[in-house]
Simulated scan of single mutants.
Amino acid sequence: MIRADHARRTLRLHAERLAHTATDPAGPDPAAATLMQADALGHVLDDLAGQFAPHPGSLPRTTHSGDVPRQAGEEELDEERLLLATATAYPANVQQMRWLAAEDFILPLHAALWQSVTALVHRGDVVDPITVLGEAQHHKLLTDALTPRDLMALVSTPAGSPEYWGEKILQRALLARAHTVADRITAYTDDPANTPYQLITGSRRALADLNALRTRWNRATSPTPASTTSAPARSAPLPRAGPPHRPALSAARTHR
């Protein structure tokens, strides 16, 4: 019982550290710091697995409410808009961005528009504001809140490079996933009905969700050959003369 209580407290402590690191804006490299905490948690799980024998029914019985919808601030939405604009301007760069998935976006509409752009790219079609508009119309993405004029404006104001904005979006998704994983593990440790081995098994499964995104993050941030397009690779944008046109997208500001 003493060993079991110690294992529970240890897992909870590391989960809390993971959650804190994933939401700490002060660090110079939040993704690296968060993944370091995830590695530390993984090492703890490996150590504990050698101390407790497996048994049938090794998954936690704890129910959790699922992922909390990510809240979209104006900065996050602006980054997603700028990715769509730069991807339309520099589609050759998009061919190398298979590490970015629709699930990484906060706004479902932006995720759907990203899929429209990448569909054009992977088919080898011409990519420009007109063809993106056509693809969006084909998938019935236009609404009263997003008119053809709104969409044309959205994808016609590039700044920087697609990789730069894509990495920002992916990093936000990585940190959000880390926080979700930490909350799930904390919920397991709070349930006294879970045995130590159930805690270990459930925590490992939760951590695997983060590791899947880590793989894509590593692909995104690995050095790649210089692009042949005119877009500067992974460059921050130059200051713009004024704020971008922002269509009225108030209907769906959380991730599905």
Rank of each mutant, 00 (worst) to 15 (best):
T88Y: 00
L13P: 00
D144M: 08
H14K: 08
V94F: 07
P108S: 10
A15P: 00
N211R: 14
R219Q: 12
H179Q: 11
G73I: 02
E163N: 12
G50V: 03
A153R: 12
H14C: 01
A89Y: 01
G50S: 08
E135A: 15
L146S: 10
E74G: 13
R205H: 14
L141D: 11
E135L: 07
P196M: 15
A53S: 15
A226D: 11
D39P: 00
T186Y: 01
Y188T: 05
L249I: 11
P158V: 11
D183F: 07
N194L: 13
T62G: 14
L41C: 02
R256A: 07
G242F: 09
I106Q: 09
D190F: 11
Y197N: 01
L35P: 00
L18M: 05
R177F: 02
L170C: 04
L41F: 09
L100W: 00
P225N: 05
S156Q: 11
P244V: 10
A119T: 14
R205K: 04
I106E: 03
Y188W: 08
S58D: 15
L210A: 06
A85E: 01
A112F: 00
A112D: 15
R149F: 10
G166N: 01
A89L: 00
L107Q: 15
R8F: 00
T63P: 04
R184P: 00
A178R: 08
H139M: 07
W165N: 03
D39M: 14
Q51I: 07
R177W: 03
Q198E: 12
P148K: 11
A145D: 10
P162K: 02
Q95Y: 15
H43Y: 03
D5A: 14
Q37E: 13
E167C: 08
A102D: 06
P69D: 01
P129M: 04
D183P: 06
D150N: 14
D150M: 05
D191Q: 11
L175M: 06
V155E: 12
M97W: 09
Q198S: 01
Q71L: 11
E74K: 09
P243T: 03
L107V: 09
G27T: 15
A111N: 06
P129F: 07
L142C: 06
V121L: 03
A38R: 03
L199F: 02
T180Q: 14
H20D: 09
R204H: 09
A208F: 04
A102V: 08
G42D: 03
K140W: 02
A53L: 05
V121C: 06
S116A: 12
M152F: 09
V44Q: 00
V155M: 10
H179S: 06
G57K: 05
R216T: 13
